[in-house]
Design a protein around this nucleic acid. Structure first.
Length: 340
DNA sequence: CATCGATGTTGAG
DNA sequence: TCAACCTCGATGG
């Protein structure tokens, strides 16, 4: 259930732990047996995220493309990076070993390891929590594991993806061509211009455009709602009526939020809490956002009840008072009720 | 213990 | 527009 920041962190985790190594690839579940066989035994040469898509490059010119969808997840175990933020992006071999890696095996050094070997495990999806578990390495696959990538001292299990396939470089290019700009992939100038020009060209509501991966990559339902609130922008404003400066501001805000998300591993959009309340809010999911998942609760700025309405099948949360700006021609259900 | 819903996308109709 | 995908934490009984 990740938005873009999680996928970049996962790409960094692969860069730190797998890139440069020969990978034993399998499909314990069986559904990806043929694809796994094509990759088995080849070296991983690169790891890259674009929006919500992950591309793992292998020797021989093949790529594993993974999209986690709504509930997919990677489970890492063994020697894993405890901080998959930006530092290892690009996947240079060797660099990974220098920074913050944990090697947690049988561990003579470990004070509490008497008897059973222990392994660090971390699930990378909507949340990340590292736990140490008893048992030998590698652990038995648990549940429906679509793909298992194994090196000497680390393993990654993929479960529940919406997309998992082997592609050639040309096919990867085809996928990339359909994706809007990603602030961590495209240059600030080019990314901003592509986004702004695309928004200006359509009557589609900005609330829908932000979720359209061909317009901008990596934004999901939470960042969408939060970015619109931070811009005090009515979600139903047609793209062409969003002032260019505001489109630029949205792009810059996405850049800032994505960087922050990759760094802290959380979608924290409440910059008003910088300082003392920050850590507490990080610990509490219901404190991290302005409007997301706050239907009926008072707006944190004006006290007006936050509304929730359907936008192309997804739940859209916003404050009809704070976000009344840039009058929309087309209005959503909540706006219609308020004015009828 | 059963049911619901989710930070997403695809493809059928 | 809606079901399917296929996982799991949260929720209710």
């Amino acid at each position: 259930m990740p938005e873009g920041h999680s996928v970049h962190r996962i790409a960094n985790q692969f860069a730190a732990t797998f890139v440069g190594h020969r990978i034993t690839t399998s499909s314990p579940q069986g559904r990806f047996a043929a694809g796994a066989a094509r990759l088995d035994g080849s070296r991983m040469t690169g790891s890259r995220a674009v929006g919500k898509q992950l591309f793992l490059e292998f020797e021989g010119g093949l790529f594993l493309r993974v999209h986690l969808g709504l509930y997919g997840a990677w489970d890492f175990a063994g020697r894993i990076s405890t901080d998959p933020s930006a530092a290892t992006a690009g996947g240079r071999r060797g660099r990974a070993r220098q920074q913050g890696l944990v090697l947690d095996e049988a561990g003579e050094d470990s004070p509490h390891s008497i008897g059973a070997p222990r392994t660090t495990r971390m699930r990378m999806a909507e949340s990340e929590e590292q736990v140490e578990v008893d048992g030998a390495f590698p652990p038995e696959p648990v549940g429906q594991v679509r793909v298992r990538l194994l090196v000497d001292d680390a393993v990654a299990d993929l479960r529940g993806p919406t997309k998992c396939e082997v592609l050639t470089a040309e096919e990867v290019d085809g996928v990339l061509a359909k994706l809007g700009p990603d602030p961590l992939v495209d240059s600030p100038k080019v990314g901003e211009r592509r986004f702004r020009e695309r928004v200006a060209r359509t009557r589609t509501a900005i609330g829908l455009l932000l979720m359209d991966q061909s317009v901008v990559s990596g934004i999901g339902n939470i960042y969408r709602a939060e970015m619109l609130f931070r811009a005090r922008l009515n979600p139903w404003t047609p793209g062409r009526e969003v002032p260019p400066e505001l489109a630029t501001a949205l792009w810059k805000d996405w850049t800032k939020l994505l960087r922050s998300g990759v760094e802290i591993g959380q979608m924290m959009t409440r910059e008003d809490l910088r300082g003392k309340a920050w850590d507490r809010a990080l610990a509490r999911r219901d404190e991290r956002h302005w409007v997301y998942h706050r239907e009926g609760l008072p707006c944190r700025i004006c006290g007006t009840h936050v509304v929730m309405e359907d936008a192309a099948g997804r739940k859209l949360y916003w404050c009809p008072s704070c976000q009344a700006g840039v009058g929309p021609d087309e209005v959503g259900p909540a706006t219609r009720e308020a004015t009828s």
